[in-house]
C-alpha cells in the first residue's frame, strides 16, 4: 500500500467513525465485565442501531449515582443503567434525569410505574447455604439457631443495604431488637458481596447474604446442585435495577431506542445467565432450567423509592447500634 492509499484509507475510516453516533451508557462495573451481560448486549444493540455503544463501568450502583452527581449536567453519559430502587429517589432529586416513554409488559412482582426509570432486571435477597443444611424458616428461627452467617455492610454494599431494608420491611419497629438477636449469628460484615460470597464458599460460615438466583449459577454454570437459598416466610426483599435517560443527552432518539431495546427479548434473554437476576420482562423462551421461581406478590417485599430514602438513615443507626455492642 502506498502512502496515498494509506492516507485515503485512514481518512475514510475516520470519516466513517465520525458519522457513527455514539451512545454512552454508564453502568456498574460487573455489568461490563467479560463475564457480565455487557459484551452480548453491546453486540446485539450495535447490530441494529448503526451506532457505537460505549458502556462505561463505574464501581457499583451507589458509586454510579455518585459519579453522575459529580459530573452533573456536563456528563457525557446519555443513559445511566444499574441504579436500584434504594437509589432512584436520590437520583430523581438531582433533576438530572428526564422522563421516558419506555413501556413493556413487566413481570416485576408488584408491577412497575415510574416515569423517569425503566427496570431491566430484578431479584430477591436471600441467604444461600449448602443443601445439606436445613434452612431456617425465618429471621427469628435464624436468630435462635447457632447458624453462622456472613453479611455485607449497608454502607458499602448493595446487598448489605438490601438486608437492612428487608429486616425493616419484615419487622418494622422491632427491627432493632431483631438485629440484636442476630448479632451472635454474624461471623463478620464485609465491605462487598465478593468478599462475603468468597468467604462463604471457603467454609467460613453456614450461610451468606446473596440472591435467590445465586444457586442457579452453580447449577447452570457449574453443574453443581449443592447450594440452595433459605426461603423465609416473612417474604424476601426485592432489588429492582433500573435505567434512566439524562436530560443533558445529545442522543435523545438513540437513548430512547436503547431503552426500548433494553426491555425487549434481545436484551432480556441475556440477563438470566450473565447477570444472574430475573429479567424485567420474561422473554418468550422463558427462564432457563435451574432458575428459581418468582415468589407471590405477598412475599415480595419492597419499599417505594421515597419510603426507602426516608427510612434509610434511621435503619442504619439501628443496625450500627445493635451490632456495635
Amino acid at each position: 500500500m502506498n502512502n496515498i492509499t494509506l492516507f485515503a484509507g485512514l481518512f475514510l475510516a475516520s470519516a466513517a467513525v465520525a458519522d457513527t453516533p455514539v451512545l454512552t451508557v454508564y453502568t456498574y462495573d460487573s455489568f461490563i465485565s467479560d463475564w457480565g451481560p455487557g459484551p452480548a448486549v453491546e453486540a446485539a444493540f450495535e447490530a441494529t442501531c448503526g451506532c457505537d455503544l460505549q458502556m462505561v463501568g463505574a464501581g457499583d450502583g451507589a458509586a454510579l449515582l455518585a459519579r453522575i452527581r459529580l459530573e452533573g449536567s456536563r456528563s457525557e453519559a446519555d443513559i445511566v443503567m444499574g441504579l436500584d430502587t434504594n437509589l432512584t429517589h436520590a437520583a430523581s432529586e438531582t433533576g438530572l434525569f428526564t422522563s421516558i416513554s419506555t413501556a413493556a409488559d413487566y413481570t416485576v412482582p408488584g408491577g412497575w410505574n415510574n416515569s423517569l426509570f425503566a427496570p431491566f432486571d430484578w431479584g430477591y435477597f436471600a441467604f444461600v447455604h449448602n443443601t445439606d443444611l436445613e434452612s431456617p424458616k425465618n429471621f427469628k428461627e435464624l436468630a435462635a439457631s447457632n447458624l453462622k452467617i456472613i453479611i455485607q455492610d449497608p454502607r458499602s454494599s448493595t446487598p448489605g443495604l438490601g438486608l437492612l431494608m428487608w429486616v425493616k420491611a419484615a419487622y418494622g419497629v422491632e427491627a432493632a431488637s431483631l438485629w440484636a438477636e442476630l448479632a451472635d449469628n454474624i461471623v463478620t460484615v464485609t465491605a462487598g458481596w465478593s468478599e462475603a460470597y468468597g468467604m462463604f464458599l471457603e467454609g467460613e460460615a453456614d450461610m451468606v447474604l446473596s440472591y435467590t438466583t445465586s444457586p442457579a449459577y452453580h447449577i447452570i454454570a457449574e453443574g453443581d446442585a449443592s447450594k440452595k437459598y433459605a426461603k423465609f416466610d416473612e417474604g424476601h426483599y426485592m432489588q429492582i435495577e433500573v435505567a434512566g435517560k439524562l436530560a443533558s443527552t445529545d442522543q435523545n432518539a438513540l437513548a430512547d431506542q436503547f431503552l426500548d431495546f433494553m426491555v425487549s427479548d434481545a436484551f432480556q434473554d441475556i440477563i438470566p445467565t450473565t447477570n444472574w437476576m430475573f429479567p424485567a420482562v420474561t422473554p418468550a423462551a422463558g427462564l432457563p432450567d435451574g432458575f428459581p421461581k418468582a415468589l407471590p406478590d405477598s412475599q415480595s417485599l419492597i419499599f417505594s423509592p421515597s419510603e426507602a430514602a426516608a427510612i434509610r438513615t434511621g435503619a442504619l443507626e439501628e443496625w450500627q447500634a445493635a451490632l456495635s455492642q
Binding site: A183, I186, V187, T188, T190, A191, E195, M199, L323
Partner: peptide
Amino acid sequence: AVALAIGGGPR
C-alpha cells in the same frame, strides 16, 4: 476492607 471483613461488624 481488612478491618471490616475480619473486624466482625460495624465495630
